[in-house]
Design a protein around this nucleic acid. Sequence first.
DNA 1: TTATACTTTCAATATTTACTGAAACTTCAA
DNA 2: TTGAAGTTTCAGTAAATATTGAAAGTATAA
Lengths: 175, 175
Amino acid sequence: MSVVLQKSVLEQAREDFIAQWGALGTAWGINRTMAQIHALLLVSPDAVSTDEVMDSLEISRGNANTNLREMVGWGLARSVLKKGDRKEFFEAEKDVWKIFCIIARERKKREIEPASQVLKNCEINTKDLGSAEAKAFNQQMADLSEFVSLASSVLEKIATSEESKIMPKVLKLFH
Amino acid sequence: MSVVLQKSVLEQAREDFIAQWGALGTAWGINRTMAQIHALLLVSPDAVSTDEVMDSLEISRGNANTNLREMVGWGLARSVLKKGDRKEFFEAEKDVWKIFCIIARERKKREIEPASQVLKNCEINTKDLGSAEAKAFNQQMADLSEFVSLASSVLEKIATSEESKIMPKVLKLFH
DNA sequence: TTATACTTTCAATATTTACTGAAACTTCAA
DNA sequence: TTGAAGTTTCAGTAAATATTGAAAGTATAA
């Protein structure tokens, strides 16, 4: 006779969310484990210990530790102490706007700023050349550079704003 | 006695751009080769053949072919025929705004829409549960879902607009 | 101190993703 | 037709990334 532990609908939904969010992390340039831990913390009512993360996601201690640290570094999680317990516990930032700002800033830093730098260098290095071909190249770099800089400053502006101040403006884009 | 072929400043700048753009591609979730081919086409005055891509970037025929096809699929490149030549040549879309729109649409499709779907499912599956914990989970999913949908429609709106119509509005975000 | 609970590190390994190159396929001119 | 020019495919391999697990490091209570 076998005993089947029935998962509640809620438990099932939590697990689905964690699995799917992990898969999506990849598309976002975030490694699977980090995205899964993020999902786990997001849907956990209480702060979670490293061991609970290891057990839930069936990952090694090293992996859990590294990714939790990185999340704390990003500001996506914070460590909290429970009285009478020596372990560290972690809880996620749950405010959607704040999560968005953190990710936007991180991506800007990792993706946009290096691109911007490359373009500016290429532009500067060809500024004084005289041939038509060189002028075309220089112009191409200038166009790209200007656009990327603009994108960067728009993102910066949005990601450092209060939600209540910027959202009405964004919604107006649809006039 | 050795002969040194001196690279012109322009050639050097082109090569730098290609190498760097390739490295950045990775951060953008675009594979290195595709980003390099894109860079090569962007800075080539004339349309380029598969063999020229292979030679310039020192990559295999298979790799060149696959990535060129994919770029055509995205709309980042088009194939052109030169009269008197049986080969296909490729040229890049060079308009920065159009490039942006293409990448935005592609990323929306690959990254935002799947996320949105996951969130909606999780929300629906827990809609009717009664416990406080379930209600909190459901609310979390609803918040995320709403935000992602909004982001998606803003991106859609921007990426399908004429540059001249949307840019003034975007610039106004800075009031 | 020292034993214990807990955290961090990192070399070895596994997994995922990209690339090669040669064979199969297609197209077209003679 | 045939064959030369060009293109596509894909099994095998290489490169990049993520993960493990055990050893070393820290902090705390006794």
